[in-house]
Amino acid sequence: MAGMLRPEVLDYYRRGGERTRLAGGPGRLEFLRTWDVLTRVLPAAPASVLDVGGATGVYAGPLAAAGYDVRVIDPVPAHVADAAALPGVTATVGDARSLPAADRDADAVLLFGPLYHLLERADRVAAWREAARVVRPGGVVVGATINRFASFFDGFVKDYYRDPRFQPVVEGALSEGVHRSETWFTSAYFHHPDEPAVEAAEAGLVVRRQVAVESPLWMIGGRLDEILASAERTGFMLEMLRRVEEEPSLLGASSHVLTIGSPRAGAAGDA
């Protein structure tokens, strides 16, 4: 099963790569914004959710607590063990390109990881196609992608450009979309904002919305922590971000983008 992931990606997650990333700062904003979008686009509980690439269950746990029937599919056995220990969550080792799930098996499918760890376009389309196969008519597929310009901006926010090894990493992402590094994150594909909708449509989905997750606010540094420390200010920030989340001009400045679609009549798994 480990062969599902590139060795450097598997090593990154074995080292606990993402276990605390969503706990504070830009990661916390990413979580809160993603959760806010999910509360508005998912069918009502107790709908079934297939969380593909769901890792340790950072979204699966709260979804189960909210009454959803949640199953995590992830290629990292340690992630699966952690997710399966959460109340109300089941978890299975599996590959986004060939899901261990029947046609029309879920009311919603989340792709919160696979799309940026599959470097080849054909593999990403296969993951979208599998999501289209297993989602029920009237259901929803939500895919998360990392923005093409994320490392370009992050280098200035965190002063990574002081290290001469960083600029070639950025150049690779800008020119080919491929981020190759074992120091800053790991191997990943960074989508241009125009790409996810095209990939999803090719896989048999009708794209309903594209949403900027963090907007440029992920780059404001310590000010973001100050806002997140206040429930009132956090609530106001989330309210304002909802108003501009579908503004096309902001997609390229957000660290992550959510692409939201539904199965097209006649798509795989549709009678």
Results as ranks from 00 to 15, higher is better:
V70D: 07
L119Q: 06
D103G: 15
R121Y: 10
D82W: 13
P114G: 05
T92N: 10
D159L: 11
P75K: 09
V140L: 03
G57F: 03
D95K: 09
D105A: 06
D105G: 09
G57M: 01
S98E: 08
D36K: 11
F152P: 07
R33A: 01
R133M: 00
R97L: 12
G54P: 01
P100W: 04
T90Q: 15
V58T: 14
H117E: 09
V89A: 14
V125I: 06
A101Q: 08
L118Y: 11
L38D: 06
A122G: 15
A106L: 12
L110N: 09
Y68A: 08
A150T: 02
T145V: 01
L119H: 07
D69V: 11
Y116A: 02
P75L: 13
D51F: 06
P100V: 09
S98V: 08
Y68Q: 12
L50D: 01
P100R: 03
A84V: 13
L111V: 04
P77L: 03
V70S: 10
P114C: 05
A131G: 03
V58C: 12
A83N: 02
A85W: 01
V89N: 13
G57S: 05
F112P: 14
V140R: 04
L42Y: 14
G143I: 00
T145P: 01
D95M: 08
A83E: 02
N147G: 11
A96R: 03
V109P: 02
A91K: 03
V58Q: 12
R124W: 07
F152W: 07
V93G: 12
A132K: 07
D107N: 13
H79D: 07
V109A: 04
G57T: 03
T90D: 15
A64M: 13
A47L: 14
K158H: 14
A132C: 11
D103E: 14
P43D: 02
L86K: 10
A55M: 13
A78E: 15
Y160V: 07
V89E: 14
G138N: 02
A83V: 05
T34Q: 03
D36T: 08
A144D: 00
P43W: 06
V142P: 02
G94M: 11
V72L: 11
H117P: 02
A85I: 00
V49I: 13
G139A: 12
A150W: 00
A60T: 13
G113I: 01
R129Q: 11
K158V: 15
R148K: 05
V89T: 15
P62Y: 12
Y68F: 12
A85Y: 00
A132P: 08
L63Y: 10
R129D: 08
G143K: 00
K158W: 14
E130C: 08
A144Q: 03
L99R: 01
A64N: 13
P62L: 12
P114R: 02
R71Q: 04
Y68S: 11
H79R: 06
A55C: 10
F153D: 09
L86Q: 09
D123Q: 04
G143E: 03
F156M: 06
A78V: 15
L115P: 00
R71F: 03
D154W: 13
A91E: 05
G139I: 11
R97F: 09
G88E: 01
T39R: 15
V37T: 10
V70L: 09
T56F: 15
G143R: 02
G88K: 04
A66F: 14
A144M: 04
A85V: 03
G94Y: 07
P77T: 02
T56D: 14
Y116V: 00
